[in-house]
Design a protein around this nucleic acid. Structure first.
Length: 104
DNA sequence: AAAATGACGGTGT
DNA sequence: TACACCGCCATTT
């Protein structure tokens, strides 16, 4: 199992209505500082329909990346459509972060 | 094999 | 709070 495959598996497990950060995926995959590599995998993901890369955002909820059609706007719409709280191009991680243990 | 690139993250100013 | 730098990893050239 390579780091790359772990990343894809983790991203595939992100439930609808939740999002994860690049750093979080990297950490779960075993390399806490490989966030950049994770982003690279999302960009060149060979399993586009199976890997919901639009559910992966920056550590502060910033919607970076997504070079697809419509760019950031499309990503934002998709997330909102799934029930994720999005405010000003940023995801409300307090409510929509995946694997967030703390819940008030 | 070495250097450059990129959908990042943390720290400093 | 916002911007700039440096460090990290995998991939590409």
């Amino acid at each position: 199992m390579t780091f790359k495959e772990k990343v894809y598996l983790l991203v595939k497990q992100i439930p609808k209505g939740k999002v994860a950060t690049y750093g979080q995926i990297a950490r779960l995959a075993g390399y806490p500082k490989a966030a950049r590599a994770v982003g690279y995998f999302m960009k060149t993901n060979p399993f586009t329909p199976f890997v919901p890369c639009h559910r992966v955002v920056g550590t502060d909820g910033s919607m970076i990346g997504f070079s697809g059609k419509g760019g950031i706007k499309t990503k934002k719409i998709m997330l909102i459509d799934e029930g994720v709280f999005v405010i000003n191009n940023k995801v409300d991680l307090k409510k929509s972060k995946w694997n967030d243990v703390i819940h008030i």
